[in-house]
């Protein structure tokens, strides 16, 4: 009795005494969790800076700054430009490439295409690794569950060799198995929350980009007609 009661139930002991498949599952989960948290922080910084720069650029643009000056700053200067700035630079650069007096429709078409290409590239950059967060969020609970089921299977199998079954025989095995589920949930919950947050933030950014593109093409069209 005493041996079962005073069993070492410390966290590290539970992990080290777990069976190999459970340990593997735990390792995978720790790696997934670490990667997802890494991406969570990276995306957090990227999206936050993107939102700030977009605010800044829209502010500057609608205050009626000189388009040529803005283009010079976005294209030539090596300062950290935002996505919106790059879209503007692509569109304005394409617009300027056409000689004055050329067909307005054709110029606007090519300008819009250039802006759309940059927009898509920027969106891709912003959305990169988001799918990883989604995967971690949906898969890691199952991986943890697999480890738990495996551990519980083992603990029950070891129970069959005991004449008198008490909860003390199963409890340590189940505890160490449940750690896998805990890890899976620890990896999944922040990943899901972050995915949803970032997806919304990127969605809002993309609508802002799109509306800016429309507005910029209007501005450019007026310029070309004049």
């Amino acid at each position: 009795m005493n041996t079962t009661v005073t069993q070492d139930m410390s966290f590290l002991h539970l992990i080290t005494s777990a069976s190999l498949p459970v340990q593997l599952v735990m390792l995978i989960l720790v790696m997934m969790s670490f990667l997802s948290w890494w991406y969570i922080f990276r995306k957090l910084f990227v999206i936050r800076s993107e939102v700030n720069r977009t605010d800044e650029f829209e502010d500057v643009f609608w205050r009626g700054a000189d388009l040529n000056a803005l283009y010079q700053r976005a294209a030539s200067s090596r300062y950290e430009s935002g996505s919106l700035e790059r879209i503007f630079a692509a569109g304005f650069g394409e617009f300027n490439k056409h000689p004055a007096g050329s067909d307005t429709e054709a110029v606007m078409e090519s300008t819009r295409r250039a802006m759309r290409a940059t927009y898509q590239r920027e969106m891709d950059r912003l959305e990169s690794h988001l799918s990883f967060l989604a995967t971690v969020g949906s898969v890691s609970p199952y991986v943890g569950l697999l480890g738990t089921v495996w551990g519980i299977m083992n603990s029950f199998r070891s129970l069959s060799s005991v004449a008198q079954a008490t909860i003390a025989h199963v409890a340590p095995g189940i505890a160490e198995a449940l750690i896998a589920t805990a890890m899976g949930l620890f990896a999944a919950i922040p990943a899901v929350v972050a995915y949803n947050r970032y997806a919304t933030a990127i969605d809002r950014l993309s609508t802002r980009f799109e509306s800016f593109m429309e507005e910029l093409s209007n501005v450019l069209q007026r310029r070309s007609i004049r």
Binding site: F41, R42, V46, S49, A74, Y79, E80, R86, A89, R125
Partner: peptide, 14 residues
């Protein structure tokens, strides 16, 4: 136009 330093800021910090 792409700013190379912009590709991934604060990677290590994350």
């Amino acid at each position: 136009l792409r700013n190379p330093s912009d590709s991934e800021p604060k990677k290590i910090l994350s």
